[in-house]
Protein backbone atom coordinates (compact mmCIF):
# COMPACT_ATOMS: atom_id res chain seq x y z
CA UNK A 1 0.00 0.00 0.00
CA UNK A 2 1.34 3.41 -0.86
CA UNK A 3 0.10 6.91 -0.04
CA UNK A 4 1.54 10.25 -1.11
CA UNK A 5 1.03 13.72 0.30
CA UNK A 6 2.25 17.11 -0.90
CA UNK A 7 3.43 19.55 1.73
CA UNK A 8 3.69 23.33 1.29
CA UNK A 9 6.41 25.19 3.19
CA UNK A 10 5.06 27.84 5.55
CA UNK A 11 1.50 26.50 5.48
CA UNK A 12 0.77 26.06 9.18
CA UNK A 13 -2.97 25.85 8.55
CA UNK A 14 -2.55 22.47 6.87
CA UNK A 15 0.50 21.23 8.76
CA UNK A 16 -0.41 17.86 10.22
CA UNK A 17 -3.07 16.94 7.67
CA UNK A 18 -0.88 14.18 6.20
CA UNK A 19 -0.05 12.80 9.66
CA UNK A 20 -3.74 12.87 10.56
CA UNK A 21 -4.62 10.95 7.37
CA UNK A 22 -1.95 8.34 8.16
CA UNK A 23 -3.26 8.03 11.72
CA UNK A 24 -6.72 7.18 10.33
CA UNK A 25 -5.26 4.62 7.92
CA UNK A 26 -3.33 2.91 10.73
CA UNK A 27 -6.49 2.76 12.81
CA UNK A 28 -8.37 1.12 9.93
CA UNK A 29 -5.55 -1.39 9.57
CA UNK A 30 -5.85 -2.18 13.29
CA UNK A 31 -2.20 -1.35 13.95
CA UNK A 32 -1.32 -1.63 17.64
CA UNK A 33 -2.11 1.67 19.38
CA UNK A 34 1.35 2.25 20.87
CA UNK A 35 3.06 1.47 17.56
CA UNK A 36 0.67 3.80 15.76
CA UNK A 37 1.35 6.61 18.23
CA UNK A 38 5.11 6.29 17.72
CA UNK A 39 4.59 6.46 13.95
CA UNK A 40 2.30 9.49 13.90
CA UNK A 41 4.35 11.46 16.45
CA UNK A 42 7.54 10.95 14.41
CA UNK A 43 5.74 11.66 11.14
CA UNK A 44 4.07 14.79 12.50
CA UNK A 45 7.42 16.18 13.72
CA UNK A 46 8.90 15.49 10.27
CA UNK A 47 5.91 16.99 8.47
CA UNK A 48 6.09 20.15 10.61
CA UNK A 49 9.83 20.38 9.89
CA UNK A 50 9.06 20.62 6.16
CA UNK A 51 6.44 23.31 6.83
CA UNK A 52 8.74 25.17 9.25
CA UNK A 53 12.11 24.86 7.53
CA UNK A 54 11.65 23.96 3.82
CA UNK A 55 9.86 25.31 0.74
CA UNK A 56 7.91 22.24 -0.35
CA UNK A 57 7.98 18.50 0.10
CA UNK A 58 6.49 15.13 -0.65
CA UNK A 59 5.67 12.45 1.90
CA UNK A 60 5.56 8.89 0.66
CA UNK A 61 4.13 6.27 3.00
CA UNK A 62 4.71 2.60 2.18
CA UNK A 63 2.89 0.07 4.31
CA UNK A 64 3.37 -3.66 4.08
CA UNK A 65 2.60 -6.50 6.44
CA UNK A 66 5.65 -6.06 8.66
CA UNK A 67 6.66 -2.44 8.48
CA UNK A 68 5.84 1.10 7.53
CA UNK A 69 8.47 2.99 5.60
CA UNK A 70 7.97 6.75 5.32
CA UNK A 71 10.07 8.96 3.06
CA UNK A 72 9.92 12.74 3.45
CA UNK A 73 11.67 14.48 0.61
CA UNK A 74 11.80 18.28 0.60
CA UNK A 75 13.11 21.15 -1.43
CA UNK A 76 14.65 23.62 0.95
CA UNK A 77 17.81 25.03 2.44
CA UNK A 78 19.07 21.63 3.58
CA UNK A 79 20.88 20.97 6.86
CA UNK A 80 24.56 21.94 7.08
CA UNK A 81 25.46 19.82 10.09
CA UNK A 82 23.06 16.95 10.76
CA UNK A 83 24.72 15.93 14.07
CA UNK A 84 24.29 19.46 15.35
CA UNK A 85 20.66 19.60 14.15
CA UNK A 86 19.96 16.35 16.03
CA UNK A 87 21.10 17.89 19.34
CA UNK A 88 18.19 18.71 21.62
CA UNK A 89 17.79 22.47 21.87
CA UNK A 90 19.42 23.31 18.55
CA UNK A 91 17.01 25.25 16.36
CA UNK A 92 17.12 27.81 13.58
CA UNK A 93 13.33 28.29 13.67
CA UNK A 94 12.13 31.76 12.70
CA UNK A 95 10.13 33.96 15.10
CA UNK A 96 6.98 33.09 13.09
CA UNK A 97 7.61 29.37 13.57
CA UNK A 98 8.21 29.90 17.30
CA UNK A 99 4.91 31.76 17.55
CA UNK A 100 3.19 28.62 16.25
CA UNK A 101 4.57 26.64 19.20
CA UNK A 102 7.57 25.10 17.46
CA UNK A 103 11.30 25.75 17.56
CA UNK A 104 12.30 24.00 20.78
CA UNK A 105 14.89 22.03 18.83
CA UNK A 106 13.36 18.77 20.00
CA UNK A 107 11.71 17.46 16.83
CA UNK A 108 14.55 15.44 15.30
CA UNK A 109 15.44 13.88 18.67
CA UNK A 110 11.76 13.06 19.16
CA UNK A 111 11.63 11.39 15.75
CA UNK A 112 14.70 9.32 16.48
CA UNK A 113 13.27 8.19 19.81
CA UNK A 114 9.97 7.14 18.25
CA UNK A 115 11.17 5.50 15.03
CA UNK A 116 12.76 2.05 14.89
CA UNK A 117 15.14 3.41 12.26
CA UNK A 118 15.73 6.93 11.01
CA UNK A 119 17.94 8.05 8.15
CA UNK A 120 18.64 11.67 7.18
CA UNK A 121 20.52 12.95 4.18
CA UNK A 122 20.72 16.53 3.07
CA UNK A 123 22.26 18.68 0.41
CA UNK A 124 22.82 22.34 1.21
CA UNK A 125 20.73 24.62 -0.95
CA UNK A 126 18.75 21.68 -2.37
CA UNK A 127 16.82 19.87 0.31
CA UNK A 128 16.54 17.19 2.94
CA UNK A 129 15.40 13.59 2.89
CA UNK A 130 14.23 11.84 6.02
CA UNK A 131 13.31 8.17 6.17
CA UNK A 132 11.40 6.68 9.07
CA UNK A 133 10.98 2.95 9.51
CA UNK A 134 8.64 1.41 12.07
CA UNK A 135 7.97 -2.30 12.55
CA UNK A 136 4.27 -2.97 12.85
CA UNK A 137 4.43 -5.79 15.39
CA UNK A 138 5.15 -4.26 18.82
CA UNK A 139 7.77 -6.90 19.71
CA UNK A 140 9.80 -6.76 16.49
CA UNK A 141 12.87 -4.64 15.79
Amino acid sequence: MQFKYKIAGGDFTNAGNASSAVKKILKQLNVDHTVSKHIVVALYEAEVNIVAHAYSGVIEVNIDKNQIHIILDDKGPGIADIDQAMEEGYSTASPQVREMGFGAGMGLANMKRNADKMLISSELGKGTKVELIHYLKPDEG
Binding site: T13, A15, S20, K23, V41, F102
Partner: peptide
Amino acid sequence: GLANLQAIRTAEMSD
Protein backbone atom coordinates in the same frame (compact mmCIF):
# COMPACT_ATOMS: atom_id res chain seq x y z
CA GLY B 1 -1.48 29.39 26.21
CA LEU B 2 -1.09 28.41 22.58
CA ALA B 3 -4.43 28.70 20.80
CA ASN B 4 -3.94 27.61 17.23
CA LEU B 5 -4.65 24.70 14.89
CA GLN B 6 -1.28 23.11 15.65
CA ALA B 7 -2.21 22.78 19.33
CA ILE B 8 -5.16 20.64 18.21
CA ARG B 9 -3.07 18.65 15.71
CA THR B 10 -0.44 18.06 18.39
CA ALA B 11 -3.12 16.85 20.79
CA GLU B 12 -4.50 14.55 18.11
CA MET B 13 -1.09 12.92 17.51
CA SER B 14 -0.43 12.59 21.26
CA ASP B 15 -3.88 11.20 22.08
